[in-house]
Design a protein around this nucleic acid. Sequence first.
DNA 1: AGTATGTCAG
Length: 723
Amino acid sequence: MKPLFSIVVTGSSTNSARVIRSTSISSSTITTTTTTTAYVLRYYSPTHINSLLNAACETQDIRYATQIHAQIITNNYTSFAFLLNNLLNTYAKCGHLHRTLLTFSHTHNDAKNIITWTSLITQFSRRHKSFQALSLFNQMRTTGILPNHFTFSAILSACAHTSILAHGQQIHSLIHKHGFITDIFVASAIIDMYAKCSNVDSAKTAFDEMPHRNIVSWNAMVVGFSQNKAHEQAIGLFMEVIKDKWVIPDEVSFSSVLSSCADMGCLDLGRQVHTLVVKHGLLLRPYVKNSLVDMYSKSGCFGDAIGLFKTMAATDVVTWNVMAMGWAQNDCFEEACNYFWIMRGEGISPDEASFSTALYASASLAALDQGTAIHDQIVKTGFMGNTCVQSSLITMYAKCGSLFAAHRVFKEIEERNVVCWTAMITAYQQHGRGDQVIELFEEMLAQGIKPDHITFVSVLSACSHTGRVEQGFGYFNSMSFVHGMKPGPEHYACIVDMLGRAGQLNEAKRFIESMPVKPDPSVWGALLGACRNHGDLEMGKQVAETLFEVEPSNPGNYVLLANIYMRHGRLEEANEIRRLMGVNGVRKEPGCSWIEIKNTTYVFKVHDRSHSQTDHIYKMLSKLAELVKEKGYVAEYQYAVNDAEEFKEKSLWYHSEKLALAFGLLTLPMGAPIRIKKNLRTCGDCHTVMKYVSDIFQREIIVRDVNRFHRFVGGFCSCGDYW
DNA sequence: AGTATGTCAG
């Protein structure tokens, strides 16, 4: 193939001994040939240079772009705007944005036309450098060049990415002023911008005002609804697309609506969309396939998701992520981790979601080794600077019990967003460090980071935990009055819990009655928990009645009420509650605890006798019983709800966490901390025993239950007896 | 000579 471009050389180029390297570019490939020392200037026409740039662009190699840049300068073509534009694009596509910007700023403004400015803004906007894009837009306006529909479309997408409504609104009015509002590209970008700024109403207005729409405009609106969790509206709009004979849904339409079906867990609709996908022949499109797998996985039909996955000839990183998350959501955390490694074996590069999911699975297993292995992969693949990954790392380390490692990750984050701060705050909260929660939260506010709903859950729980009733109310009120947020049921539940813990049961009840929204079962649940803790039978009965109506299948409510009856010695009523559970078909999830010793995980259920060292374990338990009784332990029968009277004390002693504790004491070397994990909340009696044991044996015991950590040292627990 | 919407994750 005849080269389009070569750097030719004087002297004896035939003499291979003196040869170094030079380059020739053909229209499709660039090959290296040999040459000697001195370059000679050659004449190339501007169009020729332009086609060379196109070829260089395909290789994405900055070196070729640089050589052609040199030719532009030596041929004195620097005032040719179209060459400049192509050069800037080539640099950008080679991934050298700084070179793009450097070249741009070294060029006289006269040589720049609207395309130069717009393509630069587009490049920055695409690469999520939104503020630089906005700043370029402002610079452009000072030079007197007028933006066109291309420019507006690009700058709107930058605004969308910042999620700062004010920027987008200003651009919107400029668009009106310059008369581009009817442009279909611009209008779609406006919808997208408003939706991304969580302003669905404005997006809908912009959509309704469009004189003409194409499938992209419809999709933008469907996506806007979907991403703002207005799923019914998203689906409604999608139906209109299906009915409208002038627009044909494409893969974007399907993947977006499936995302809504998935989020709602709406299987029927999902299946209908599936058949529509087949009808439109879009089943093999990557986005659609992945959305379908995700929909089945989230709608409780993980089997169908696996089936679909197995028939897929081509998978990508998202397919694997969706599947891994599916396993995790079905409590198969080992399998979720496996999928990460299988995907690596298949040669697919992980992305931030892969890491988040793998870390989530490791955290759920409290498998520090697994989490650390993923951390290694993060470092190797260059994801350590990714805030999403960093936040997941914090959570993983915290849930694996290493608050220190979690904080180390936190410290090293350069630009912390809400998620990072919240991850660290929640970590402290789970470890019972209420003071540090408040401290960190105040620091976050001082740095101007806006807290979100999740942040407040942790902060309010910490207030509850540390008895900061007034401060808790202060933060709760600040949600509406300072941050313009609407408290959700989880926040009301925190406040009820806080009042209940402080013994202010009547205030808690009044608080619920004054709620502007209908109290969620979790709110009543918090009050019932408080009644249990303070032994308030009358209120407990009332609250339980309410709960049995709205949430008849939650075993926790029955257990709490039975606990209260037991505490009052009302055994018959407690048994009656147990019977009611049977009648309503409610079963308490069996408690199980596990302990890791030398890379092996040992799982214990209540009364478990399957372990080979069972005799030793049960002997150890009787010995423990004697020791703690000497120290003043009294069995707390209220936690032995499910057992016949004469076995109550025995059965308390055979709770899974006590079995794991005995096994740990027998097996682990002297002085090594005992780390136990439990699938439910820690039982109150076990909690008491752990405190005694930590003192008697001078051993650190760490129990991670479903909600938080309990670190027992010298007879005290880090949770301050609150859980 | 440069334009828009999209699946997963925290």
